[in-house]
Design a protein around this nucleic acid. Structure first.
Lengths: 266, 266
DNA sequence: CCCCTCTCTTGATATGGGTCAAACTCTGCG
DNA sequence: CGCAGAGTTTGACCCATATCAAGAGAGGGG
């Protein structure tokens, strides 16, 4: 794993020093911990430490092997890479995608702060998709082997980790429903409402936000072409459901958007 | 959970006595165990006990709270039901589906012997989809609370469980690729190859098998209408890739099927 | 700060798969 | 054993979304 670190540095990826550790070695753990640990992270209600006691959160901090910066457009990992760790988004925005031989790309998820990436790698022990930053981002690197060990001692951590995986499965069921059974406009409405909720859960505005992804990426996620996405945006705007100006979206009528999903053709 | 059992019995569901337990109480554990336990189950290489030592498998057997019979067309659980247990398919065949308000149904998975159902319920603590038997089936009921406890003591069990969840995530990524990026015939080809592999892994013929689901159910899973599925079957048959006669399918040219996936339009 | 490139919008046209319809074929039940 | 109903096949037609095209706008790198 130290090898892993060196390899990454060699590739030009930036690692953030973890003062919590460095300083602890110098003998003033409290202050150091507060400066970067999970307990001080404003995402702890969403991320892995959710529901744990203060003491437990301190132990979970030990899982964070490093922080890693990923610039916009760069890969965090690629399909086929050996699997060692999960990644918690600390800041920024990611997409994961799978590719067909002829180059067709399917985006399988967008990840924002507090969400965990890489769980599909546990089974095959290698990553099965590509993770790319959509803006300059930072992730917490969670060594999976340590997570396994620690979650044997902390039932709360075990539970939370299982819930995180389970929710990923449930989320994907939702996407399958969307891709398999919804029409273009329903898909986009569901997508916007989902983004809105997730921003709101992070105490950002759910009513107004900036899309981090292009129309093409939205289309890839929703199984549509970018032109279809663009047209649906325009139609929603005409109907007063949203306001769009390029990547800036305002949700004007969330109830109206909800209402158009799953109610048949009219 | 005893309540759970009574409720189910009241609904007319059949439970299979677990002689392993009853007999153990009478003092001859070995014989009893062999008659029904995981160690004797021909699925143990696929199912939860995969990779565990004999001694560990004995402990895992304790997880199986009951066996339950589900007749063709009956529900194992429904969306909204409280989540208590996972289910391992012992014999038979299941579908899970999600439904939109207007009745559109999306089948999210088909499960065959040795596969684990219900993992999407862990996070929300209730099932989020419906599980229906496509033929008379039997499942092993795995109490989730006990699985949590036992997997703290058995690292091998913990690992295997994480792998099972992870593979479910990876499988769904594959389905998303299929639904979002493939054309009708590619989808059906991918579906048939997947079924074929899974039958083969269970030492059934991967070259010839009987579909347990209708064209409509295949269509629902693949995001297509039943007529489209039927036409694709006919086309594959004309091209000599498969033989179909209603639910009986023969794979005549697996390489040919593989070749038509992900290679662009021609 | 400006240019270049990437992204987005909108229109015209094409088409894959959906919809509707009818006939055929199993299967299971009386 | 035969009938009813569910499931399947196939044809004709249509529509939602893809495809192709062109121009406008925005933002990031030098």
């Amino acid at each position: 794993m130290d090898k892993d670190l060196k390899a990454c540095v060699a590739e030009g990826q930036v690692f953030v020093a973890l003062p919590g550790r460095a300083v602890r070695a110098r003998g003033s753990p409290e202050i150091a911990r507060v400066s970067t640990g999970c307990s001080n992270c404003n995402l702890h209600e969403i991320c892995i430490p959710c529901g744990l006691t203060g003491r437990e959160v301190d132990q979970v901090e030990e899982l964070i092997y490093a922080r890693r910066c990923v610039k916009r457009g760069e890969s965090l990992y690629r399909a086929g890479d050996a699997f060692n760790s999960l990644y918690a988004v600390r800041s920024g925005f990611f997409k994961t995608s799978q590719t067909l031989e002829d180059g067709r790309e399917q985006i399988t998820a967008f990840y924002m702060a507090g969400e965990i990436m890489g769980m599909d790698g546990i089974g095959p022990e290698r990553h099965s998709c590509n993770a790319v930053a959509l803006e300059d981002s930072q992730v917490c690197v969670i060594l999976y082997s340590q997570l396994e060990v620690l979650s044997r001692d902390l039932p709360g951590l075990q539970q939370q980790f299982h819930k995180v995986m389970s929710r990923e499965i449930a989320r994907e069921h939702g996407v399958m429903l969307l891709l398999g059974s919804m029409r273009a406009e329903e898909r986009l409405a569901a997508f916007l409402l989902n983004l809105s909720q997730r921003f709101a859960a992070r105490r950002y505005s759910g009513r107004e936000f900036v899309l981090r992804m292009t129309r093409e990426e939205i289309g890839s996620y929703l199984g549509l072409k970018l032109e279809t996405v663009s047209r649906a945006f325009s139609k929603f705007q005409e109907e007063g459901l949203i306001s769009v100006r390029h990547k800036r979206v305002g949700i004007l009528d969330a109830a109206g958007l909800k209402h158009m999903i799953g109610r048949g053709l009219h």
